[in-house]
């Protein structure tokens, strides 16, 4: 009995000591010299491994920054805070870049925008886009199958009740992965600061084609261009575009827009009904 005990203690203890010694030796002889700054930087990064910086993950980005291959402010989700933190570690001064959020430039939901055919396929916009150029009459409008929602690593997007994606301002880091995922380029990154008006339409078609396909599409009538006292609105390929730097939120353009696709970013501040078409949370 005693022999049994001793043997078991010796064996297990011996194996434990052996492995301990081997591990210690391995740690010494196979030690990898790494720059401590890499770990420090990895620490201050958001750690979402979203890939918006162009590297496979936060760890790879940290490595690249230390080696000088990547710019200090390349981490988009981390924004200027992260850039400053990295700059501090590397001893560089950093000018923060303007923080952005994603915005969905289409409000043509199932009722307002007509369809060519009923789509019974894989729930993915990129695939739906391949079948006859998408099932919507409007070749620029949101298909509403949620590829952008699936692409968001921060859980900042969801499909709204009207079948269009919504962006959660607070969660959105502006990484731009949703923008990449959208086959129609409906999602754009806009300054985070909640000011200005937006033309929530993506259609480059001419007026008649737009109004046939969608009740709320920009028909390119230029009424808003004429109405804007700041000359902030220009026409680009039959689509009104508002320069957010110039827009002073006067709201003159909103009642002039017949399809009603100009929406103030911040609530119904202009007294115009921005009601049923959600004041984009973007």
């Amino acid at each position: 009995m005693e022999r049994q005990m001793i043997w078991s203690i010796v064996t297990l203890g011996g194996l434990g000591v052996l492995f301990g010694a081997l591990l210690a030796l391995a740690a010494r002889f196979f030690a990898v010299e790494s720059d401590p700054r890499v770990e420090e930087i990895a620490e201050v990064l958001p750690g979402a491994n979203c890939g918006a910086c162009g590297y496979a993950g936060c760890q790879n980005f940290a490595q690249a920054v230390v080696e000088g291959k990547a710019a200090v402010d390349s981490c988009i989700p981390g924004g200027s805070e992260t850039a400053e933190a990295i700059g501090k570690i590397l001893g560089q001064d950093v000018e923060g870049r303007e923080p952005v959020v994603a915005a969905v430039f289409c409000i043509g939901d199932r009722e307002k925008a007509s369809s060519k055919f009923i789509y019974f396929g894989i729930e993915d916009c990129r695939i739906a886009e391949e079948y006859g150029g998408g099932f919507k009459d409007c070749p620029y409008g949101c298909l509403g199958l949620g590829s952008c929602v699936a692409a968001c690593p921060f859980d900042a997007m969801r499909m709204g009740p009207d079948g269009l994606p919504e962006v959660d301002r607070d969660k959105c880091t502006g990484c731009g992965l949703c923008k990449e995922a959208c086959p129609r380029g409906i999602i754009r990154m806009i300054p985070r600061e909640e000011r200005g008006h937006l033309v929530l339409c993506n259609s480059r078609d001419r007026g008649r084609a737009v109004s046939r396909a969608c009740q709320v599409g920009c028909i390119g009538c230029r009424a808003c261009v004429r109405a804007c006292p700041e000359e902030a609105i220009t026409m680009e390929e039959n689509l009104a575009v508002i320069d957010l730097d110039r827009c002073n939120d006067c709201g003159e353009c909103v009642p002039k827009c017949r399809p009603g696709c100009i929406i103030p970013r911040k609530g119904p501040a202009t007294g115009v009904e921005a009601t049923e078409t959600k004041t984009i949370s973007a």
Binding site: F19, G20, L22, L23, A26, F30, A31, V32
Partner: peptide, 12 residues
């Protein structure tokens, strides 16, 4: 122990 060691060695 083995997994730990393999990891260390592999890293190098």
């Amino acid at each position: 122990g083995l997994v730990q060691m393999v990891e260390t060695v592999l890293r190098k």
